[in-house]
Design a protein around this nucleic acid. Structure first.
Lengths: 256, 256
DNA sequence: AATGTTCCATTGGTCCAACCAATTGTCAAG
DNA sequence: CTTGACAATTGGTTGGACCAATGGAACATT
């Protein structure tokens, strides 16, 4: 396994160092345009200013603007037509990959959309876990135990551990597509500035430990149905907590 | 509703005209490179030839190569590092949007991956339908009836109708994320040259009509649980048929 | 021998200044 | 009113130049 040497190993033993991620001009431009679109500064169907104008506005070369627009096009946010211009596409046509930015908007959180996202992710996790319980190998189970212990530890970034668990679950399914989804999910969760909700409500991933242990125990007994039931419990717990937080935040002032 | 004028209306009354899809150079380059990666002509971790070399190879300007690489980067297929080069990333890091090309490879179909895809899509459709049954409006139900009749009709492209049904279901969920997923799904299904399997096995979307009618009947009786059960039946039918086809094709020669 | 330093070729990032090509609206001819 | 030619607008492509980061090789230091 694990011939993935690119970014996989980086999250093997995670230190709190963030990669210097040198920023390229077109990325900056793309981000600003993206935010402008989500802000509603450009309405759906509206045209962006012509490239030459944007280049002048951003004080960069037209090339950088063009590359930025390539990114937006890839995200499904705009449609480009020669001779006509660049028009904003409806949100529902956007790519999955655009969701993090749609939801986490600087300091602001799009709570309604976050709730909908959770509503989608929850059943996905359940199905993924169901398959994982069915198809895992002993080695993977051992690895899961290791992560469980990390979650109990005090030095670790527990949220990072939780994300790794999700990825491990997807590996257990032996399904490439689930693996892809889980990795995108990890990116999404990592991008989430959930510290806000966490600090306010004092959530800690470690609170899932009892249920996780119960699930693992069921697995070792060979009782897969019981394991699935426990899994359902865990996911419902996470699901309801997130919705609850979102609802509270919605009523109790902004998340800034 | 329906302020989405970009591509929504196009699929409203679908004529068998395919848009002239003006092809840009960088798209062609991107496609070729993408295929080369999926073909294994570039191994994971390997570096692509430098931009200048590729430009010469493709007989295009370096700019076009760069824009192509932006696209691949957006799909999560490659990682770009200044001074180092462009390296191929592991498949599991790829974006959802890369899946169609990963599976439908010119004349060839990646059957194993297609099976895994179906395994993922099936439970998604089920959950989507469940929510749709819960939350639909009378107008949407009426629209669904209309589509059902189209499916029974003889003039329509029945597979297109089926895709529209999926999108309508997602609209019924009132969940933006499901809507996004469904629209990407539609694109995926539309890109699928399933004619192959269809012709070989004589599948026709209309064969789902009895179950669809049963489901709609349950809904009108107000019996949502029964409707969900019928829905499960439909999805299982589709699911098993697809897996069956894939398995048969795998054993019975190539799909070319 | 091991380690740290300097230097340089390679490679992506950005810029500029043209010109090509498609789209759209205008306006005159029919 | 319709048609078709024209011109302005806007994205697409090109060639060439220079900047900036990386990684390895040669070299110096310990």
């Amino acid at each position: 396994m694990s011939h993935e040497k690119t970014q996989e190993q980086a999250s093997e033993k995670v230190l709190p160092f963030r990669p210097p991620t040198r920023r390229r001009l077109h990325e900056d431009v793309a981000d600003q345009l993206r935010d402008a679109i989500f802000d509603g500064r450009f309405v759906v169907g509206e045209k962006l200013p012509p490239e030459r104008e944007l280049a002048e506005e951003f004080q960069v070369n037209r090339t950088s603007v063009r590359e930025a627009i390539k990114v937006l096009e890839g995200l499904g946010l705009v449609a480009v037509r020669q001779g006509d211009g660049v028009t904003v596409r409806p949100r529902t046509e956007a790519s999955f990959d655009a969701l993090p930015a749609m939801i986490f908007h600087g300091n602001h959180i799009h709570l309604a959309l976050l709730s909908e996202m959770v509503e989608v992710i929850a059943p996905m996790l359940l199905e993924m876990g169901r398959l994982a319980i069915e198809r895992h190998t002993p080695e993977q189970l051992q690895e899961l135990q290791r992560l469980r212990d990390q979650l109990a530890g005090t030095d670790e970034d527990r949220h990072a551990v939780l994300r790794d668990i999700v990825v491990l679950l997807s590996d257990m399914t032996r399904n490439t597509v689930w693996q892809m989804i889980a990795r995108r999910m990890r990116a999404f969760l990592a991008a989430a500035p959930m510290d806000v909700a966490r600090r306010r409500y004092g959530r800690d991933p470690a609170r899932h430990l009892p249920r996780i242990d119960a699930c693992l125990a069921s697995l070792e007994r060979g009782d897969r149905d019981a394991a699935v039931r426990e899994l359902q419990g865990i996911i419902r717990q996470i699901y309801e907590a997130m919705l609850h937080d979102a609802h509270n935040a919605e009523n109790g002032g902004h998340t800034e």
